[in-house]
């Protein structure tokens, strides 16, 4: 096990810079999630750590060792691929044992370790099957088994849950977290699903256009997004971002419709951030009309129109009485919940 350090790492494909001057410290034993929209460079970053892509600049260290120019096999890192990348013609037993065979481990030792790993992943009864005869979740577990069998310094996961159905994804998410905690190994996980990132990670790294937009604990990134991109990307439903102006302790939206009290906010033009769960539908405040109610079970996503402004709010099940489409409501913000962003730089104030 070891920490991973990326120092000024850059990756170019021809004239296109995919990752630029990336500095990251992925600490020993931590579960770090790289999250961002498609094309933000997160998978390329992961592949550079694995050694599957050469860097165009910068250094990558695993522990104290500079692995920048090393082949993947010399980095002692295991990777779980998006489509599992199992060897379709080899049985589950031989798939899991392959990394040990590649390292010249004796057959008896391989058999022993495969049995142990298979037991820990509930794969014992599937050992003689071919990957094509397994379900998606079982294939995923085989891929994980292949990664953990040689006890590498770090695990890399490239969107490993994206091909699973919603229920299985939740199960595997828990399974992955349990496994990582049990093994105490450094893990880097790439996903475009911010919910996955928030639930899995000790540390979340939000990427945009090949750069780190923000990094920190999931709670800190959620509570204090560094800019409007992170604010809109992290959280579901996404944060309401409302251009307007603060004057005399009151925010007035640029498009008429919303007026909110803003204690202690610097006067002037602003982009106001309001999390859906912090928008309260109570009497008083700005008038709004309910456009749409999407019931999710314990809570509902409610779309409210305040004059020309469309606002997304989340209402708990217990407070849904009277929340019906077409009803008139008052909109207020939970005290102290507002976020302010600079309209020019889009950065948090």
């Amino acid at each position: 096990m070891a920490s991973i350090s990326l120092q000024n790492v850059t990756k170019r494909f021809g004239d296109v810079t995919v990752v630029e001057d990336l500095d990251l410290e992925l600490e020993h034993g931590q579960f770090t999630v790289l999250v961002g929209p498609s094309g933000c460079g997160k998978t390329t970053t992961l592949r550079m750590i694995a050694g599957l892509e050469e860097t165009s600049g910068g250094r990558i260290l695993v522990g104290d060792v500079d692995v920048t120019g090393l082949e993947p096999k010399d980095r002692d890192i295991a990777m779980v691929f998006q489509n599992y990348a199992l060897y379709g013609h080899l049985s589950v037993r031989r798939n899991i044992g392959f990394p040990l065979k590649a390292r010249g481990v004796a057959k008896e030792e391989i058999d022993l370790r495969v049995t142990e790993v298979a037991e820990s992943l509930s794969l014992t009864h599937l050992l003689e099957r071919l990957p094509g005869q397994l379900s998606g979740g079982q294939q995923q577990r085989v891929a994980i088994g292949r990664a953990i069998i040689r006890q590498p310094k770090a695990f890399l996961f490239d969107e490993p849950l994206s091909n699973l159905d919603a229920k299985l994804r939740l199960e595997m998410r828990t399974e992955l977290l349990r496994l990582q905690r049990q093994l105490g190994v450094t893990a880097v996980f790439v996903t475009h699903d911010q919910e996955e990132a928030m639930t899995l990670s000790d540390k979340v790294v939000v990427m945009r256009d090949g750069r780190v937009a923000q990094q920190g604990t999931p709670a800190s990134v959620y509570a204090e997004p560094a800019d409007t991109f992170v604010a809109a990307f992290v959280g579901s439903p996404t944060m309401n971002l409302l251009p307007g102006e603060v004057a005399d302790g009151v925010f007035r939206s640029a498009t008429p419709g919303l007026v909110l009290p803003t204690e202690g906010m610097v006067p002037g033009p602003v982009i106001l951030g309001l999390r859906p769960e912090d928008a309260l539908l109570t009497p008083g405040g700005s008038d709004g009309t309910i456009d749409l109610v999407e019931l999710l079970g314990p809570r509902a996503i409610v779309r409210v129109r305040c004059a020309e402004i469309a606002l997304t709010t989340v209402v708990e099940g217990s407070a849904l009485a009277g929340i019906t489409e077409g009803a008139t409501v008052g909109v207020q913000a939970r005290p102290g919940s507002l976020h302010a962003f600079d309209p020019d730089t889009q950065q948090r104030r």
Binding site: L52, K73, A78, M79, A85, L86, Y87, G88, A102, R146
Partner: peptide, 26 residues
Amino acid sequence: APFEAARVDGASAWLTFRSITIPLLS
């Protein structure tokens, strides 16, 4: 993907050829 997995798994060129290329190409 299987070739990249083999690289990460530490397979030599000969093992990759014998265990992955030939079976996939059969």
